[in-house]
Nucleic acid binder design. Sequence first.
DNA 1: TTATTTAACTTGTATTTACAAGTTGTGTTG
DNA 2: CAACACAACTTGTAAATACAAGTTAAATAA
Lengths: 235, 235
Amino acid sequence: MENIPQYRKLYELLRKHIVEGVYEEGSLLPSENELCAAYEMTRPTVRHALDSLVKDGLILKKQGKGSIVRKTPKNIGILSISGTASAVGVRYLKTDILQKPMIKTWPENFSFELSELEKESGCIYMERLRFVEDEPVFYDINHLPNIYLPRITNRSFENRSLFEILRKNYQIEILGGEQKLKAVMPDKQIKKLLKLKTGQPVLHIERKLTTNRENFNIYSTIYFNSEKHAIFGSF
Amino acid sequence: MENIPQYRKLYELLRKHIVEGVYEEGSLLPSENELCAAYEMTRPTVRHALDSLVKDGLILKKQGKGSIVRKTPKNIGILSISGTASAVGVRYLKTDILQKPMIKTWPENFSFELSELEKESGCIYMERLRFVEDEPVFYDINHLPNIYLPRITNRSFENRSLFEILRKNYQIEILGGEQKLKAVMPDKQIKKLLKLKTGQPVLHIERKLTTNRENFNIYSTIYFNSEKHAIFGSF
DNA sequence: TTATTTAACTTGTATTTACAAGTTGTGTTG
DNA sequence: CAACACAACTTGTAAATACAAGTTAAATAA
């Protein structure tokens, strides 16, 4: 049963306490020796746990002083991984589905390299336009392989993010990814969709997100109107 | 002179060897016991060094197997630039120092909020223009607090990155940060510096990087010509 | 030959011990 | 009262040791 190492248990416990606010931000954690006594571990073990917290950015250690609680909400990656919604930093984001999820073949000149299995499976395609305060700011085109996803074309995406549906209904988790960012002048279609002024550039993002399923990556192309809002990310 | 800890020396050495290609991508590092023998350290010390490499994403450890040199080193936030064709190494990035590190007061309307200590310390300012294949692509303005950094204004930044100097000479590590990205039209100065065509937008980034030193954050404003290259990040 | 076991590796976890180095408050001394 | 010294903390570095657990290839048995 108890295959979890001690340092990991202490890490999880302290992490929980920190995010739940048991320790105030800026205050000191119990000293290493105190933790040793409290949880019946030796100092290297305690230090191992604390090292993990430092890595996560949850505490900051200072020699001679102690471990300072930081409680910094840190996301993985450049933009928030949990979906485009949280990337902008705005709570209310209305979504228009321009193209409901449909099955089709992969585009001819796809920007990313695909595995054999991904190629064979065909892809699911969808387009969305997202609004902040009733103004369009976000246009995203998504390609995902047509595997593991029964009945996805029937689902409603109106009020739920793509990532949320993948996680809750298909147990697909985003592990990481890569992305390329550019500043470009929009073409006519993008300009019209995002209601851009003439001469207003847009942020162009191409991302590949890897998941816990092998050969299942999510490919997105995003156009973002950065006139009034900025893409924000903490890491 | 030599009060640099052993694990750190080994870390720097292995890091150097990895980035210089002494160990091939995907190959195995010498085993921990071999490293112990070679450098006359005990295993905990060697493991400490390897842990740092794992944290940097330079190696990947696998129990029973060994330490695998990673193909794609994981970046902290946005750091690397990828050419459109193939991966242009950072090696080809020439740097012009437009403004050598100098001590001055913080700007009046600074975009970020500063702590009291940071304000009191004054700031170190530097500007750089960076080239890929002899074309300017990257213009960055950096502000850092004038603490912990003896003699930094005398150092040469020609062939070494700011982060490298902070890490090696001052033991300052980047823990994380936050950033805002926009696509903007450049002003005259930026247009001239980056030799931009008329109508070419640029990527504008503002970032705050937090470090292992309290009250020591690095503030950067970056203008990036994304016509031929893209900002690339993996996470 | 083929399948299985075993031995010899690898990294992972953990204890114990020791001293170095930075921080802070409590004294003592001038 | 103020400046200094020191003691009692804190985290940082490092050694020696032990066993657990995963991987691999060679030796062995069918």
